[in-house]
Amino acid sequence: MNSVHDVANPSVLAVGLNHFYGDGPERMHVLKDICFEVQPGEFVTLAGPSGCGKSTLLTLIGGLKSVQSGSLDVLGCSLKGCSPSLLNGLRTKIGMIFQSHHLMEFLTANQNVQVATEAVIDRSFRARELRCLELLASVGLKDRANHYPSMLSGGQKQRVAFARALACNPQLIVADEPTAALDAKTGRDVVAILRSIAKERSISIVMATHDPRVMDMADRVIGIDDGRLLAPA
């Protein structure tokens, strides 16, 4: 465990969290009585098969869906009944990484990272550009800053997505199967980069994966199956 953990103020605290899709007889109970917490600077992996509720849990933590039942506090903000503007503000403190990189093909790597800084960082264009170059350098892509996504490999694109997630100085990173489209070595390499940057800056990471090649890199692995958290082995 990381020494910077602040047990009194966890980054994520879920108590009795439930989530449903649909209505009436077709209503599906996708998250069942979820209770867990993630400490500041901690790297937690949510591991489980496809369709077990990992992505739904991440969308709730990321403030992208409203909490229906139970309580969920993220970065000190209770998401139950939270207003859209508060959720929007919260999202500027969370870096999100998706299975697909979702880079904008018409922007260079540097511009793709800058897009994330425009929403939150009140600095001049030049200052933001320099910060984005620093971030690209931190993921080993300084020399690719002016390349378009079509000129980058899969691993490089995912690293640009990591730099974009870090651009808003997040306190929490939510990652959904970021290694799914990468080969074993590249997958481990990009997660190692993310892990070292997060540890350096005390950023919590919640990463959903069913990739056993990267699970051992987390501080803690939380199993999830059929919408329920599994007891630690």
């Binding site: 990321g62 503007s85 999202r91 999100m96 979702h102 904008m104 897009v115």
Partner: peptide
């Protein structure tokens, strides 16, 4: 739409 969704996910109003 995916680009707009991405911008919303990173805090654009």
């Amino acid at each position: 739409l995916p680009a707009y969704a991405l911008l919303m996910s990173i805090g654009y109003q």
